[in-house]
């Protein structure tokens, strides 16, 4: 579980800080900065390939039920247990390579004998959706608090700054596993059933609470440097309301760092969510989960290493593609940055 580390954000901070406000970028008549960025991006073949891969993963996540229908299996049925001859008395698949066959493309899950391919497809669906939600939420919170802190300054800035400091000093991995049961226990009485959505919501909640601080700190620094710039001063002198200054003057100049930060954060949240699953505090059975597959894999790898390969390699492909895509987006936004 690699929780968004400040190391990467600092690198972005450098990148973003050296980025000129979009308005003063290379002026080619008739093209908006967005169009420029898109043109640059399209020329970057690595970026396009990565984008296609990432898009593929999202499609798999969205179309999981369709895939299930075409493939003819679902992630819940315990095929290995219902049909003799698939699992041995120790619960491992009898066929080589973790029970891979024309029928079970990625093999069978040891113990329960569920279809690994379906587990993976639906697991990606669960994990990706959590990562997307957390990225959006923590970015929004981080942007709002970061801008507020930087723009208003004074006591507000002090309070938000200290909260950020404390959050960053927390051993965040530890707190993730500590807080998840607490959040749930606070909401559900022990004799009530814990609904699936609650675990889903509390994972999102905890990841968001511990995740917004990095982006907030970054944006605060950006706003601090921007608000003394001439165009902001000018807007203020001409009597623009704070809302106008924030939305019309500051925000357009912040989109670049925000988007870069978000693309960096998403794969990290995928890893963090999977880390929770690995430690046994992620999504619970029977909801398929990418991270929990690692937990199973780590337990059975002595006898069935194939099982570990599928979630592992697919996550590696996804994260590599997403990171390369992130690099391309950064380049497209700011062709001058050196990496």
């Amino acid at each position: 579980m690699t929780f968004p580390s400040s190391a990467t954000t600092d690198a972005v901070a450098d990148a973003a800080a050296s980025a000129e406000p979009a308005g003063s970028g290379p002026a080619i008549v008739g093209r908006s900065p967005g169009q420029l960025m898109w043109r640059r991006f399209r020329r970057d073949r690595t970026g396009v390939v990565s984008a296609v891969i990432v898009l593929g993963f999202f499609l798999v996540a969205i179309l999981a039920p369709v895939i299930s229908m075409l493939y003819g299996k679902d992630p819940y049925s315990t095929y290995g247990q219902d049909r003799p001859g698939l699992l041995n008395p120790y619960g491992y698949p009898i066929a080589p390579n973790g029970g891979m066959s024309g029928e079970f493309w990625f093999g069978l899950e040891p113990g329960l004998g569920r279809d690994v391919f379906m587990q993976l497809v639906y697991g990606i669906r669960t994990s990706l959706s959590i990562a997307v939600i957390v990225t959006v939420l923590s970015t929004i919170i981080g942007v709002v608090l970061g801008i507020t802190s930087g723009y208003i300054g004074g006591k507000t800035d002090y309070v938000i700054g200290r909260v950020i400091d404390t959050l960053l000093a927390f051993p965040s991995q530890l707190f993730l596993i500590v807080f998840l049961p607490v959040v749930e226990a606070a909401i559900v009485l022990p004799e009530e059933e814990t609904p699936t959505w609650l675990r889903y919501v509390s994972i999102c909640l905890v990841l968001t609470v511990l995740g917004w601080a990095t982006i907030a700190r970054l944006l605060r620094a950006q706003v601090l440097s921007l608000r003394t710039r001439e165009f902001v001063e000018a807007a203020r002198v001409t009597g623009a309301s704070p809302g106008r200054v924030v939305f019309k003057e500051l925000l357009p100049n912040l989109w670049t760092p925000i988007i870069i930060q978000a693309t960096l954060a998403l794969p990290l949240y995928v890893g963090a969510e999977a880390g929770l699953g690995f430690l046994g505090v992620g999504m619970t059975e029977p909801t398929p989960d990418w991270g929990r597959m690692f937990q199973v894999g780590a337990n059975v790898y002595h006898s069935d290493v194939t099982y570990l390969i599928f979630p592992g390699v697919s996550m590696l492909i996804f994260v590599v593609a997403f990171n390369l895509l992130g690099d391309s987006i950064r380049d497209a936004f700011d062709p001058k940055t050196k990496r």
Partner: peptide, 18 residues
């Protein structure tokens, strides 16, 4: 370093151990 930065401990760990 691109691949390394994308690896997960809970994947590489058991794999290398195996």
């Amino acid at each position: 370093s691109v691949v390394g930065a994308s690896l997960q401990i809970y994947f590489v760990g058991p794999l290398l151990a195996f």
